[in-house]
């Protein structure tokens, strides 16, 4: 055919075909999405420190392992209270002349999703120790350590943020680990990662592909949730699998008077709403409220904690806990 034997016609046709499809499938949708989506009214822009922290996040390629998108599927429920929306990314613009926009949605989840990590794990002590070497707080972690974000000082100055690092992680160096500005910027960025609340009256899109087991599990009274699994997922990073916590950072549950004692109201309150009454330890976030625990789940965690590591607390029932949770809610309402 003459057409195919003429290089100008052939290659122009192929290029035109490709460019047309590109326009339809990439450029036009991209421009449209860029223009129609506006940030949510409640959205807060990043603080100055968090912007610098985001630059460090980008420079170190954290996006290689951490996504920042909650998909509208049931399995992603653990990463946020609602699926991510186009509006969540609408306020992200080009970083600077040299660097492109960083939505940091990511394509691999070797580590946890970070969309809502500011709510899930806001603890400064935990995050800094974790950045210095993740294995201090999570033994099984394979995340890289970032010791170059810290300096070791024999005599920390007054304003220095000292990180509680066990001696075995210091590799023979002596002194205190002090967070640099960069570490604090990165911390500020991580703490700022929170899902924005939807405006009143707007329903979040549903999570698809619901787990069947859960639906039937709720109805069948015999199948209580597994306390150990819940503990691993929600509590272990701070209180550790041994229940011993980390000295100077996270209090032990082993032998704890709250865990073993009979003041269930205080116990449930701590799980649901957090705790910061003891200056020698870091503050605890409102883990239970974040994770939307049911009374069954709270009871399972409590029973696991009360019966592990030599603890000898009495068994609690979901019915008891339900009442307590209601009174706590009432109190919080007042």
């Amino acid at each position: 055919m003459e057409f195919f034997d003429n290089h100008k016609k052939l290659f122009s046709a192929a290029a035109l075909f490709f460019i047309t499809l590109t326009l339809v499938v990439a450029i036009i949708p991209a421009i449209r999405n860029q223009n129609i989506n506006k940030p949510l009214p409640a959205a807060q822009s990043l603080s100055e420190d968090a912007v610098k922290g985001k630059a460090i996040f980008i420079a170190n390629g954290c996006v290689a392992c951490h996504t920042q998108q909650v998909r509208n599927v049931d399995m992603d429920k653990v990463w946020g209270s609602r699926p991510s929306l186009a509006a969540d990314y609408a306020d992200i613009h080009r970083t600077d002349v040299w660097r492109n926009t960083a939505t940091l949605m990511g394509t691999e989840r070797t580590g946890p999703d970070l969309t809502d990590v500011g709510n899930r794990q806001p603890s400064k002590d935990w995050n800094l120790a974790h950045l210095y070497n993740p294995r201090i707080v999570v033994k099984e972690s394979i995340m890289p350590a970032y010791p170059w974000l810290f300096v070791i000082k024999k005599q920390p100055a007054k304003g220095d943020v000292v990180v509680n690092v066990p001696v075995s992680y210091l590799n023979g160096q002596e002194g205190k680990v002090v967070a640099t500005k960069d570490a604090l910027y990165l911390l500020a960025y991580l703490q700022s990662l929170k899902q924005t609340k939807l405006p009143e009256g707007i329903e979040a899109p549903a999570f698809l592909y619901k787990r069947e087991k859960k639906e039937t599990g709720g109805a069948a009274a015999g199948a209580e949730p597994d306390g150990k699994t819940l503990f691993t997922a929600n509590c272990q990073t701070c209180h550790q699998a041994t229940g011993e916590g980390l000295p100077g950072a996270f209090p032990p549950l082993k032998g704890s008077s709250v865990v073993n004692g009979d003041d269930l109201e205080k116990y449930v309150d701590i799980i649901m709403n957090g705790y910061d009454a003891r200056p020698e330890f870091g503050a605890m976030p409102n883990v239970g409220t974040n994770a939307q625990f049911t009374e069954h789940e709270v009871a399972a965690i409590m029973n696991y904690e009360r019966s592990s590591w030599g603890n000898t607390g009495k068994k609690v029932t979901p019915d008891e806990i339900k009442k307590i949770m209601e009174t706590i809610k009432l109190k919080a309402g007042k």
Binding site: A30, A90, H93, T103
Partner: peptide, 22 residues
């Protein structure tokens, strides 16, 4: 063409970046 689509900044804000990236 692909490199131009990826690096020209006019459609890279918000989700535009993700669509261009995909």
């Amino acid at each position: 063409v692909i490199m131009l689509v990826a690096y020209i900044p006019y459609w890279q804000n918000g989700l535009g970046e993700t669509i261009a990236q995909g």
